[in-house]
């Protein structure tokens, strides 16, 4: 992979230039949290941050969107999607892996054209980070990226080491060549030191070996209902998760009682009526069954279906849970329980 160097002092200028001809999205302060939002010259771009409240999925699978309009006699009209080129700047490795997971769901097999249109128009510029006590991406193997980005910037103090991941990414460099320099041996050494230092900073750990097998065996564990006693079924863990993609579909009818739009909106498997079906049967009536669903889907079902866990270790679910549910701890105690039962 070709690498170049962006002196830190040139970043501002680089972003300002990218904003010409692209819709540019950058991490910014919003109240007390960090949020991906549209860049304008007065934006204060935050380059050192832990995690945005909502992950970048909101740009590909919007929280609520109209899919098509309908009207008697006119049939269906699909909502047009913007084709303006867009750049998402500042995605951490976990969030880039999160997008890969969404791609597997929305682009492989049955293609979701709405998602595809958003994905096709977007370039990704990644940015390195340091973990806090909730991050466990290195346990999930998502602490580094080798593809699925156009450029990736690693902060090495005064300079960013820039990995180029696509020809379009390369074009961004060529168009702004005056801002970049060639890589030096010293920087490559600094890069290796950065990686080593970073991997020592993780406090939160998750042992994933055999995890999906263990989960399959612990289906009936009393742990689920026990943990779910605390769960508020608020859905915040799903909304903030970069790989939770469930949505509900409904019609929004106009006052003529005939025309309207078909829409979708994010939902969560933690909600009671998520598994409610016609006839009034609910196949996950208890909070324990629903919490189990969320964890099983991430760490077992996805492994079985896609060969890879759907959890990218970003830590959002546990960082934002008002009930203090820590998903790593839940998984660790399940593992503990199973090893005890083998010994016993």
């Amino acid at each position: 992979m070709r690498t170049v160097v962006l002196p830190g002092s040139n970043l501002e200028e680089f972003l300002a230039r990218l904003a010409v001809g692209h819709e540019l999205i950058v991490p910014q302060k919003s109240g007390a949290s960090i949020s991906f939002a549209a860049y304008d010259p007065s934006s204060e771009v935050v380059v050192e941050y832990q995690r945005t409240l909502l992950p970048p999925k909101k740009f590909f699978l919007p929280p609520e969107e109209a899919l098509f309009d309908f009207a008697p006699g006119e049939g269906f009209r699909q909502k047009p999607t913007s084709s303006e080129r867009r750049i998402l700047f500042g995605l951490h490795p976990c969030d880039i892996h999160g997008l890969r997971r969404l791609d597997q769901v929305f682009l492989e097999g049955y293609v979701d054209t709405y998602y595809q249109a958003q994905r096709d128009r977007t370039l990704i510029i990644g940015l390195s980070c340091l973990p806090d006590e909730m991050c466990f991406c290195n346990s999930m193997g998502t602490d580094l990226v080798t593809d699925h980005f156009d450029l990736f910037l690693t902060d090495l103090g005064d300079n960013y080491l820039v990995e180029i991941g696509s020809t379009e990414g390369n074009d961004l460099i060529l168009d702004n060549e005056d801002l970049f320099a060639e890589t030096s041996d010293i920087l490559l050494r600094k890069y290796k030191v950065f990686l080593a230092t970073r991997s020592n900073l993780f406090e939160q750990k998750l042992d994933t070996s055999g995890l999906s097998n263990i989960l399959a065996l612990e289906w009936d564990s009393s742990h689920w209902e026990e943990t779910a006693k605390d769960c508020l079924a608020c859905g915040r863990c799903s909304m903030t998760c970069p790989t939770c993609y469930c949505f509900t579909i409904f019609d929004e009818v106009n006052l003529d009682g005939a025309s309207g739009s078909r829409c979708r909106r994010w939902t969560s498997c933690l909600y009671k009526n998520y598994a409610l079906v016609a006839g009034g049967h609910n196949f996950r009536p208890s909070r324990g069954a629903r919490l189990r669903q969320r964890i099983m889907h991430k760490h077992k079902d996805s492994v079985e279906r896609h060969g890879i866990s759907a959890c990218v270790g970003c830590g959002r679910c546990q960082a934002h849970c008002a009930a203090g549910i820590n998903f790593c701890q839940v998984l660790t105690s399940l593992r503990g329980e199973s090893s005890e039962s083998i010994v016993g």
Binding site: A32, L53, L54, L232, R236, S268, Y274, H320
Partner: peptide, 18 residues
């Protein structure tokens, strides 16, 4: 189907309960 938290989180509010 959802509690207020869904819309609250979509609006990227920090959690007051937390």
């Amino acid at each position: 189907p959802h509690p207020v938290c869904l819309e609250c989180t979509i609006r990227e509010n920090n959690c007051l309960l937390q």
